[in-house]
Design a protein around this nucleic acid. Sequence first.
RNA 1: GGGCGCAUAAGCUAGCGGUAAACUGACUCGUUUACACCGAGUAUUCGGAGGUUCAACUCCUCCUGUGCCCACCA
Length: 793
Amino acid sequence: MALENKQNKQYSFIESEKKWKSFWEKENIYSFSRNSKKKIFSVDTPPPTVSGEMHIGHACSYSQQDFIVRFKRMRGFNIFYPFGTDDNGLPTERLVEKKKNVKAKEMKRDAFVRLCMDFLKEELPKFIQDWKDIGISCDWNILYSTIDKHSRAVSQWSFLDLHKKGRLERRDAPSMWCPECKTGVAQVEVQDKELDSLFNDIVFKVGDKELIVATTRPELLPACVSVFYHPSDKRYNKLKGKLAKVPLFNFEVPIMEDERADPEKGTGLVMCCTFGDQTDMEWQKAHRLPIKMAITPEGKMSELSGKYKGLLIKEARKEIIKDLKENDLLRNQKAIKHVVNVHERCGTEIEFIKSRQWFVRYLDLRKDMLEWGKELNWYPEHMKHRYFNWVNGLQWDWLISNQRHFGVAFPVWYCQDCDEVILAKEKDLPVDPTIDKAPVKECPKCKSKKIIPEKDILNTWFTSSMTPQISTRLMPESIQKKLFPMDLRPQAHDIITFWLFNTVIKSRLHFNKNPWKDTIISGYVTREGEKMSKSKGNIIRPQEVREKYGADSIRYWAASSKLGEDFDYQEKDVVTGAKFVNKIINATKFVFMNLKYQQKQPKLLEMDRLFLSRLNQTIEDSTKAFENYDYARAKLEADSFFWKNFCDNYLEIVKNRIYNGNEGEKASAYYTLYQALYSLVRLMAPITPFVTEEIYQEYFRKNENEKSVHNCVWPEKITIKESKNDETVWERIVEIIGKVRQAKSEAKKSMKAEIILTLSKEDKTLLKDFLDDLKSVTNSREIKEGNFNIIVL
RNA sequence: GGGCGCAUAAGCUAGCGGUAAACUGACUCGUUUACACCGAGUAUUCGGAGGUUCAACUCCUCCUGUGCCCACCA
C-alpha cells in the first residue's frame, strides 16, 4: 500500500510536459503583448529549413536562445519572439517534389508555390511540434514562412527600395556560374574542393622557337588571348611584344608581362583565357584583352572551339590532350592535386561565364561594412573576426539572380525592344511577372508594347536577409518602430557570412541602421568529435532522447555548453539532467512535507541568515552571468548551489530542527527553506521550464501571484543583514561537516554514527552561533575545545 | 598561405596571476522519517619548450596536435 502510494506520486515528465505545454498555450503565457508598456525584448529567431525533422543541433541551439529569452521574460520584458520557417530554397523544393511526386520545373511557378504552401499547411504543425516539445517559448501566433505571401512582398519591397537607392545593377558581365544547375552563383555559395588534375606542358610557338606553357585546362586554348610572364623573369623578357602561336588552333596572341604571373609556377609562362579563373578576368580588364567564351552556360564547348564544339568540358579536355600528343605539342604531364571552387549545392566546378545578372552593388562599402560589424555586440566576441575576414576578402558584388524555377520572383519586366526595366508598383506586391501583368501597357521609353517578364528568381539569402522586417511587419505599424532595430540575433557560426552578413547589409542599405544590437553565435553538436551526418550514421534524434529522458534533460544538457563552442553529445550528460529533475522534485517534496508557509520574515536563526546570505551570492552571480548571455555559467551557479549547499548541507542541517525544534526555530527554517527553494526554482526555470512549472503550480502558486513560474519576477536578493565574513563562516561549516563525513567513512561507519568533535578555540569563537546546528548535523555527543579532532564512536 | 578558436583526470567539461574543480566511470563504504534515478569517501590531472613575475594551468613568444572560416585554381 505504501509502495503503491509512493509510485503514484512519482514525477512523470511525460505527463508533466504534456500538461504544461497545453497550459502555456491555452493561457498565452508566451504571447507578445501589443499594448503593454513594458520594455520590449525582440528576437530575430532563425527560421529552420523545412526539410525533415528537427535535429539535435537545432534542439541545442534553440534551447540556448530560449534560456536567454525566458530569463529576459522574467526580468520583466515584453518578449517579441516569432517563429519562421525557411522554405524558398532547394531543400523545401526537393522535399515537396518527393512528397507530392511532382517536378517543380514542369509546373508553373505559382502553382508550385501554392502546392508548397498547401504542403506546409499540412506538415508545418508536425514540424513545429518538435520545437514546442522541447519547450521553446516563441509566440506561436507570430509565424511566417519565407515563401509565404507576406515574405514575398517584403523581399520584393527590398528589391524596389534598393533599386530606388541606386544599389541594384543588371550587368552583362562574367560571373560565377554552375554548369550543372545552370545558374549564376554568389561568392558565398562557392566551396573549396580538392581534386586530382594534370598539369600539362604544352607548346606555343614564336616563329620557330618553342615556348612551354603549363596548364591544367587545355580545353580553354580556343579562348586564349595572351601569354604572361613576370617582368623580372629574364628567361622571357626579351619576348615582350612578340606574338605566340596557340597550338592546335594556330591563331596568334601577344606575349605580355604582368606581376601576377608567378615565375616559380610551372614554366613561369601562363596563358590567359577569358575566363578560366579570376586572374584571367583581372588580366582581361587590366590589359583590355578581348573576351572569348569557349564554354557555354550548359557547360559545353562553344563554336570557338571548332571541331570540339558541343563536347562537355571534360570530354574536350581529353580530346585536346590526345590531339596535342599526336602533334607532338605536349611535352610533359604531371599529376597534381589542386583546390578548385565548386558549387556548394552540387559539387560541380564553377565556371566564369558572361551572362546577364542582377547584382547588389556593395563592394564600394567595404570600409563601412567593417564599421557596421564593429557596432554589433558579438557573443562570443571573437566571432566578429569571421565577419571582418569575410568583408576583407569580398571580391564580387552580391549576385542575387538565380536561373532557377522555385523561389521569390523578381518584381520586374523588361521592354523587349529597348530592354528598359519596368518595376512593379509597391502596392501590387507580391507579384509574379510570369503571371501578373506589368503595371504599364507599353514601354515608357520606346513605347513598344512588347513587355516581357523576368523569369529568374531572387537568391534565397536575398529574402532571408529580411527576417527582421518579415517578422516585425506582421505587427501593426505603431508597434513596428518599437521592434526595430531588434535586440538579439541568435544563430550558428557557419552562416555568419551568409545570413548575418547579408542581414546587416540589407538593414544598412534600407534603413542605415544595424538590424540588431546583439548577436549570439552558437556552436555545433558533434559526436565523438565528428560532425554528425546521415552518411556517417552517427545521428542522434532529439525526439528519441526526449521520449527517454524528457525535454528538461535535453535542455539541461544544452545549457552545459558555452556559447559558441562546439560540443560533444554524450547521453550521460542528458542523464545528469534527468537526475537534476528527480532531485529537485524530491527536495521539494521534503521541504513541503511539513512546512508551514511564512509570509513575513520571522526572526532568523544565525544559521538560516548565513545560508540566505550564501543564496544571495548565487542569485547575484547567476543574474550577472545571464545578463551577459552566459547561460552556462548561470546554470552552473544555480545548479551547484542547489546540490552542494542546499541539498547536501543545508537540508541536513535543518532536518533536526524541523522535526524537533521549537516554534521560533521552525519558523526561521520554514521561511528560509521556502525562500531558498522558490529562488532556486526560478533560477532554473529558464533551463528546465517543465519541472519548475510543475513545482511552482503544486507548491508556490497558492502563495504567489503569477499564473506561471515563467511570468514570475526573476529572483532578487533576500533582504537580510549580511556581514563580511558570512562566506568564510559558511565555508568553514561546510568544511567541518565534510571532515566529519570523511572520518566516519574512513571508520567505515554510518553517517549517523555518533562522534565527539573537538574544535579549535578560533573555530569555537567563529562558530559560536552555530554550535547547536553543527552538533545535530554531525551527530556529536559533545563539542569540545582543543586541537581539531573527530572521534567516531 | 591568411584569419580565428581549442588543447585541464579514463571520458566529457568548469575555472583562473596566488598551493587544481563538477559530472560520468573505477575503487572502498554507508543507507530505510526527500531521494537506490540515493548518500559519503578514495585515487588520478593543466600538450611541449622558452620568457615575464615574488608567484604562471592562467599573461607573452615559439612549437606540436586539432577544428572552423577565408584565399590559393595558370
